[in-house]
Simulated scan of single mutants.
Amino acid sequence: MHEGAEIVEQTVRSVLHDLLGISQERLALFDDTTPLFGALPELDSMAVAGVLTELEDRLGIIIEDDDVDGEIFETLGNLIRFARDKALG
């Protein structure tokens, strides 16, 4: 894995830990296919906005409203790919 991509994945996992209170042990079990929105009680519509804002801050990216759709939060893999595409172009 590209070093930048690894940093993005670590950042996404860190945001889920810090904002949603998901334990490191539980996060370690998450893979690309782990469902997020609708499956994690911690991730409600208010939390989605916080996660996106925190990703912007930590990765130095801008996320436009038009960039966001329901697929981004379907799985951890989708969220990581979205963040990676934004951060690394």
Rank of each mutant, 00 (worst) to 15 (best):
L16D: 08
L40M: 03
G60C: 02
V12H: 08
T53A: 14
D32H: 01
G4M: 01
D65N: 12
Q24S: 13
D18P: 04
G38Q: 07
A5V: 10
A49V: 15
V8E: 03
E54L: 02
S45V: 09
D57N: 14
D65E: 11
G38H: 07
D85N: 11
F82D: 04
L40H: 03
A28M: 13
I63S: 09
G50C: 10
G77H: 10
I80T: 08
T33V: 12
G21P: 07
V68K: 09
L16P: 01
R58V: 05
L40P: 09
D18R: 08
A39D: 13
I61R: 00
I62A: 14
L16S: 08
R13I: 06
L88N: 06
E25K: 12
D69H: 10
V51D: 11
L79E: 09
L20G: 10
S23F: 04
D57A: 14
V68T: 04
H17C: 15
D65L: 12
D31H: 05
I22F: 01
L36Y: 06
L88T: 06
G77I: 01
L29M: 15
A39G: 01
L76V: 12
L55N: 03
E74A: 12
D44I: 10
G4S: 08
D31A: 06
L20F: 07
L16I: 03
N78S: 05
V51K: 06
H2F: 11
R84L: 05
S23P: 08
A87E: 06
G21H: 01
I61V: 10
F73I: 02
S45K: 09
T53D: 12
G70T: 02
F73A: 02
E54N: 11
D67C: 01
L52P: 09
E71C: 03
T34Q: 15
V68C: 05
I62Y: 13
G4E: 01
F82Q: 06
I22C: 11
L40T: 02
I63T: 00
I80A: 05
L19P: 09
E71K: 13
